[in-house]
Every structure is written in C-alpha cells, then in structure tokens.
Amino acid sequence: MSILVVAEHDGAHARPGSFSALAVARDLAARSGERVELLVVGSGLDSVAADAARFAPVIVVDQPLLANPTADRYAQIIADVAKARDAVSIIANSTTFAKDILPRAA
C-alpha cells in the first residue's frame, strides 16, 4: 500500500510546492505505515527525476506526447499508476495544474 505524490515540475526541477505535498504524504505515512512515492510525468525528465529522487522513490512516466500537461492523458496515467502501486491516497500541491487533473483522475 502506498501514498502517491504527484510532483509538478518545470522541465528541469521539481517545483517547491511538490515538497509541501511530500511532507503531507510523509506525515500520513508515518501514522499508517504506507510507503511514499513521487510520480513525475512529462517528456525529457532525466533532470527532474534525478532532482526528485533525492527525496523519495520516483516513478517516471516519460513520453514525447506528455510534453504538455493535458488533463485527459495525465489523469489516466495517475489513475493507472495509483492502481498499479496500490495507492490509498494521491497527494498534490493545490495549484491549477493539480486542480485541473486530479479530480478527473479521481
């Protein structure tokens, strides 16, 4: 069982707000024992993945078609990864990126 943190990035690094989300996830996991994993979605993610990996295990979905965050593709990926990783919660920083995509993933 896991907690999935959807990280937002700028193509080179994870955005700082993602770490707020990670902190929340860690807090929840400390009480219930789930593992915490970061999800990074996009294209050309080597730098972002390396940056994120310093904080938690990272799941990377890297495809040219995912260069721009479109809700339909990203929501499908988040849902599929959540199921594959047996996630009990999905956490993200409350930005327009997450507000657009997460309800659809739900």
């Binding site: 339909d72 657009d100 309800p103 659809r104």
Partner: peptide, 17 residues
C-alpha cells in the same frame, strides 16, 4: 472546483478548465 473535471472524466470527453 471538481465537478466539471469529474464529469469530463466520466464521459471521457476533453476538458478545458
């Protein structure tokens, strides 16, 4: 700020929020 996105997901329609 969720119902529209959920509706689009249920219908599998494109969304623009």
């Amino acid at each position: 700020n969720q119902a529209g996105q959920m509706l689009a997901g249920l219908l599998d329609w494109p969304q623009a929020t």
